[in-house]
Amino acid sequence: MLETEKLSKKYEHTAACTDICLSIKEGQVFGLLGPNGAGKSTLVKMLMGLVRPSSGKAFIMGQAAGDIEVRYKTGYLPEMFRFYDWLNAWELLSFYARVYQIPADKEKLAIQEALELVGLKGREKGMIKTYSKGMQQRLGLARAILHQPALVLLDEPTSALDPLGRRDVRDAIKRLQQRGTTIFLNSHLLGEVEMTCSHLGFIKQGHLIDAGPIVDFMTKEQEITIEVDNLNHDLFTRWNIEGRAVNMNDKLLQLKAVNREEVPIIINEIVRAGGMIYRVESRSRGLEEVFIDLIENDGAV
């Protein structure tokens, strides 16, 4: 659905994106995470043809990103969303319905569906200048999905929304996913991403430092707590050397940075060395921990 090959954008003194290689399959909800200024919005803008790449290529549905044909199949909600405030919501969506060549007999239904999906039904005749920022963001989402695109790129879609609004957008994204729409989501809000996305990418200083299914990030490097008696001290020393951040308190052994596959191996090692295990608990890391670990501890790129 979406492929980039060493996609880069360099400005006079800075590199906004460097050699981004990304692959998003049909139906995925991909969340791109990164601190402010990491290059998230620039990447999305390159995918939409709004910013010209310095080098590299990007393809959407097999065609060059930014092509007119591709734009018919793509929806986009920019981070800096603003609309013609001298129009009302219906007029704005009607304008875009014509731009996207939605047949006249289907225009009304398409607008109604989009408004309903974002929770703006009944407010469509209000002038946009009277809308709150949150309502404008909902309208932006309605515009992005109006023509039922196969791919939707959302740049910070919940930044102006209150918790109820965020829930509505989450629900909207889920409904889009059920339709088979592929979604590319830029967000600072880790909780939103955790609840919404199937795949993640982490970007730092313009470099994509890691990407993959969200379940891999969450189950990778878990923390396990083992209630154990008669633990062999050599094992304890070895785990410390391996950098597993071992902690032993009374009979509770805490081990960090353990992959899911390693849990039975560790238990087996303890038992074989004469240890008596009474209880094992494993805890997946939250996305916040994953994010901080990758972004903060990964060092300068």
């Binding site: 043809g49 709004l50 609309f83």
Partner: peptide, 14 residues
């Protein structure tokens, strides 16, 4: 400056 161009330029309009 006010961002309205992003909607227009990302649509199928040349």
């Amino acid at each position: 400056e006010n961002g309205t161009i992003l909607g227009l330029a990302s649509s199928p309009l040349k």
